[in-house]
Structure formats: C-alpha cells, structure tokens
Simulated assay, not measured.
Amino acid sequence: MRRKIGTGLMVCGVALSVFAMAGALSGCKPLPPSKDPKLFTPEEARGAQVFQTKCARCHYPTTTRGLHGPGLQAITKVKSMPSGAPPTDERLTATILHGHGMMEPVPMKDEDMPYLLAYLHTL
C-alpha cells in the first residue's frame, strides 16, 4: 500500500511539474502589481476618486477578476484589452466615453479624463 501512495504522489509531482513548465513555456507571466496608493501623485489620487464614482460599480481595479465588467489590473501594461484593442490612452478614452460591446458609455467631464487615465496607468 505504501508503494501505491508513493507512486501516486510521484505522479502528482510530475504532473505539477509538467503544468508549471507548460505555463513557463507558454509565456504566462504574472501581471505587474498595482502602484501603492500611498505613492500616488495628486493626479493619480484624483483619478482614483473618479474611478470610484464612475467605474468601480462595474470593474475591480487591482485584479483581473471580473465584476460586471473585466478586472482592470495592468490594463495599460498588457498588449491588448479584453476587447482585443491595444490599451492606448486614445482607445481607453474612446471605450470609456462611447462604450464597447456590453459596456455602456460613461458620461464624464472632459477635465476628469486625464486624471482617470493617470490612475489607470497605476493599475
């Protein structure tokens, strides 16, 4: 019986190693962490307030886990947004103001957008 348990553990260990190696070879990298709010510039802090009033009901900021919309961790640091478009400030602005797919347009004052973008770059 000990032999079967030992073999089972060895098989599990090999399987985990294979999965870890497959992840490494496929280019899976952990996303960079979000900036510590204590280190925010005044612009980023104001953008965090805009996010809380305009975006937080649908998006988590510091995880990729979805709420009503996708989580936004590293949204400006990845090659493409969930829509497949590159995460440029212009594309983010267009998506926010005009909506995309299931996302409704978000009405926003012109002066708030640069602050929101500054905050999004901290995620």
Rank of each mutant, 00 (worst) to 15 (best):
R3K: 15
K4I: 14
K4Q: 14
K4N: 13
G6K: 15
T7M: 10
G8T: 07
G8S: 12
C12S: 12
C12H: 01
G13S: 13
A15R: 04
S17Q: 06
F19R: 09
A20I: 11
M21R: 11
G27N: 00
G27A: 03
P30M: 11
P30T: 09
K35M: 12
D36M: 03
P37L: 04
L39E: 14
L39W: 05
E43V: 02
E43L: 03
E44N: 05
A45D: 05
K54C: 04
C55E: 02
A56D: 00
C58K: 01
H59A: 02
T62Q: 10
G69R: 02
P70W: 06
P70V: 08
G71C: 10
L72E: 04
L72S: 09
L72T: 09
K77M: 13
V78G: 11
S80H: 13
P82R: 08
S83E: 12
S83A: 13
G84W: 10
G84H: 11
G84S: 11
P86G: 07
R91L: 08
L92N: 00
T93F: 01
A94S: 15
A94V: 09
H100L: 09
M102V: 06
M103Q: 04
E104G: 00
P107Y: 02
K109P: 04
D110G: 09
E111R: 04
D112L: 06
M113H: 00
Y115P: 03
Y115H: 14
L116M: 07
L116D: 00
L120P: 03
T122S: 10
L123T: 07
